[in-house]
């Protein structure tokens, strides 16, 4: 059963950073249902992803944390309700 979760990633605004993040998420078996980006502090994006997958998002968060351009994975919500952060 696919579950919908939200993940908020703070990402350095460098060449390829967004592609790298989205590619990793898809390759690890998560469908991106929604995406919103906004500038956070200088040179950093706040990227909010709504993800659908049958997989556990725990390992995904750790894989995202390993990306060189990721400053932090701020929040993981669960369930189908929109998550606000």
């Amino acid at each position: 059963m696919s579950e919908r979760r939200a993940l908020v990633v703070r990402l350095r605004r460098t060449e390829g950073a967004l592609l790298r993040l989205l590619g990793l998420v898809q390759r690890r078996g998560f469908e991106i249902a929604d995406i919103a980006t906004a500038p956070a502090e200088a040179g950093v994006w706040r990227v909010r992803l709504e993800l659908e997958s049958v997989r556990d998002p725990g390992p995904l968060a750790r894989q995202i944390e390993k990306l060189y351009d990721v400053v932090a994975v701020d929040a993981v919500g669960s369930g189908s309700a929109p998550v606000t952060t």
Binding site: G58, P59, R62, E65, K66
Partner: peptide, 8 residues
């Protein structure tokens, strides 16, 4: 060494 391997 890789935390992403734990529980994968």
């Amino acid at each position: 060494a890789d935390p992403a391997e734990i529980g994968k």
